[in-house]
Computed example of a mutant assay.
Amino acid sequence: MRVTEVRVRYENRPHAANPIRDALQTLTGGGSVHVEIQTDDGLVGVSSSSFGRGDGAPRSLAVLIESELAPVVVGQDAAEIGAIIEALKVQTEYYGTFGLPTFGISAIDVALWDLLGKAHGVPTYRLWAPYRDRVPAYAMVGWSNYSLDELKQVAVKAVEQGFRGVKMKVAASTLDEDVERISAVQAEVGDGVRVMVDANQVLTLDDAVLYASVFADLGVYWFEEPLRADDIRGYAELKQRSLTPIATGENLYSAREFRELFEQRGVDIVQPDLRRAGGPTEIRAIGGLAGAYGIPYASHGGGPAALSLLMSVPTATWLETGLRSSERSFPLLEDGCALAPTGAGFAWE
């Protein structure tokens, strides 16, 4: 099962009239990059990765995959995924594997695992010794640019669609306004729905401690990424001083960075991002570390590949996704849980 071709294309996302916003950034532009890996027996593995804030970002990633990564993959045994990923890390070492190259490696990795699942005629997660076939799901719906009424309406819609939790952005204005918005959402969704909050790295340690204390009184389920992602020592101190569980990890790269976070006891809920962490191969190692340290694991972002990984992580707790566009759209929910993909590879049905 030799790789004969790697095809790459990209597309830009139309600019929204009212772009979504958090405390750190306004998400305009960007788009997605799509990869197809074909083998000599006719199988094709695919991946699709949302990428970037600017219009040039998707093209930049597509060019890197096509010019730097694809030549390394062509001719390789598609089943030897670990060896291919290590070769890609060597290929990108000269200019730094973390950052843009990791997004490219992740896209290749997802397509290879999709292909391997198809080769065996099973959902890929079945190849990973799964622990479960479903996981609780929450919807990231509470962007900072939403008015209070818009925020309440979208949170209620998420609950009506069957989600067990909702997440909203904080720290874009004042703590008092955050309290008002959180309290309003909690009143709308009711006691049985978890409310998570995300500060997107903008707070100092002292401010984060203050926010965490206030959020604890409100019963916030977790406080996500209050500090810079690379401030591991800061997270270790914050976790000791916080009465609200601390979540982070979406902006870390590789199992080595997550190992340092775990060793420093800097997190209550870890949240690897499929694209930045390094793809399924690297995330399976991160999931094993989370299990060894007894740290709950929640995805950053959704999609069939992220959901599949949650099936095989011992301490998996939550899938993050957005609102569903229809009753048959991803993910399928049952009693607040996202059901594992049922199609071959990462095809979710």
Rank of each mutant, 00 (worst) to 15 (best):
D133C: 05
L238T: 00
L243V: 00
E250G: 14
G302Q: 02
M311R: 04
E320Q: 12
G29T: 04
V170L: 06
E225V: 14
Y146Q: 14
P123W: 03
E327G: 09
S50E: 12
V35F: 11
F215M: 13
R7G: 03
R259K: 15
Q186V: 07
L210S: 09
V179E: 07
R241A: 00
I246M: 06
L333V: 02
E250P: 07
S50M: 14
A111D: 13
D176E: 13
E250L: 08
R256H: 12
L310R: 12
E257P: 10
L307I: 02
V195C: 04
L218D: 06
G266T: 04
E86C: 10
D22Q: 11
Q240K: 13
A344I: 06
P71E: 04
D41M: 08
F215I: 02
T317N: 04
G56W: 07
F346Q: 04
T102N: 12
R228T: 12
R132S: 09
A344K: 04
S308R: 04
R324T: 10
I232K: 04
A247W: 03
D133A: 07
V189W: 01
T342G: 05
E5P: 12
G294P: 02
Q38E: 15
P19G: 05
P130Q: 10
G287I: 01
D77T: 00
F258K: 09
I286Y: 00
T342Y: 00
A172V: 09
P304S: 06
G336T: 07
R21P: 00
L148H: 08
V63D: 15
I182F: 09
S254C: 02
M168S: 04
S254M: 09
L210W: 03
A184L: 13
N251T: 05
G322N: 05
L69N: 03
D217T: 09
G31V: 15
V8I: 14
I246P: 00
G104H: 13
P14Y: 12
P136L: 10
D206C: 01
S106Q: 08
W318C: 01
V8M: 03
S213F: 06
R9W: 11
W143F: 15
V195F: 09
D273A: 09
A57G: 12
Q186W: 05
I84N: 06
V44G: 12
S106T: 08
W318S: 02
P136N: 09
G343T: 10
